[in-house]
């Protein structure tokens, strides 16, 4: 197989990092909602922490996206 095709497959696989990130974000969001519903007075704190956790999870997903972009840039 030619190199460009392999690169395209690699880019596709790299973006699969969104799979795990999606699951993680879902769990985080669900637990945060649960916490806020149980104790509405910690709403502000829980929301801030949720966003920070989202950011950390998202970084890993974005790393995959970055690799995909780099591969696409090499493909031309």
């Amino acid at each position: 197989m030619e190199t460009a095709g392999l690169m395209a497959i690699g880019a596709g696989i790299a973006v699969l990092s969104g799979f795990g990130g999606g699951i993680g974000m879902g769990i985080t969001g669900a637990k945060a909602i649960e916490a806020i519903a149980r104790q509405p007075e910690v709403g502000g704190d829980a929301r801030t922490l949720m966003f920070i956790t989202f950011a950390f999870i998202e970084t890993l997903t974005i790393y995959g996206l970055l690799i995909a972009f780099m591969l696409m840039g090499k493909m031309g």
Binding site: A55, E58, T59, I62, Y63, L65, L66, F69
Partner: peptide, 10 residues
Amino acid sequence: TVRLFGNVLG
């Protein structure tokens, strides 16, 4: 770096 730029570029 990567988070901000990846999100906006993506």
